[in-house]
């Protein structure tokens, strides 16, 4: 390390890695992973979300697993709640759709209407 610029560079990279441990609100992506969700492929969905976030270099998003909420026929369910916005529930989300949700909704803030199950009222556990 030669200069302060080098130190800043390391800090920016490292911050991504520990940001989850800081308190404070951030965008949440909840994947419902009861038995029904897992059977419908929620594991692949969540893996795709994490992978896409990593590819796009987004560190400040919480990806949470939740239990079954009773909408089993819509599994895999993915709920996105951007900081300060209403949460949106998407149904039948496979890997490809999951990646689109990350790019369009999580990052750009555009709701993908065609996959929405229930908009504006969170029926999630939180």
């Amino acid at each position: 390390m030669k200069s302060i610029a080098d130190l800043k560079k390391i800090r920016e990279q490292a911050r991504h890695n520990i940001s989850l441990r800081e308190s404070g609100e951030r965008t949440q992506v909840r994947v419902y992973m009861g038995t029904c969700g897992i059977a419908a492929g929620a594991r692949q969905t969540i893996a795709a979300i994490i992978d896409e976030l990593a590819k796009q270099n987004i560190g400040d998003v919480e990806v949470l697993q939740k239990g079954c909420i009773g909408l089993c026929e819509h599994e895999p369910l993915v709920e996105v709640e951007r900081k300060g916005e209403d949460s949106v529930m998407y149904g039948h989300i496979d890997e490809e759709k999951a990646r689109r949700i990350v790019t369009r909704h999580v990052i750009d803030g555009v709701i993908l209407d065609e996959w929405v199950v229930n908009c504006g009222c969170s029926i999630g556990i939180d």
């Binding site: 990279q13 991504h16 890695n17 520990i18 989850l20 441990r21 969540i46 994490i50 992978d51 976030l53 990593a54 270099n57 987004i58 560190g59 919480e62 990806v63 949470l64």
Partner: peptide
């Protein structure tokens, strides 16, 4: 960058 969805601190 490696992204983790959860951190477990021991």
């Amino acid at each position: 960058m490696q992204l983790y969805r959860a951190h477990v601190l021991v």
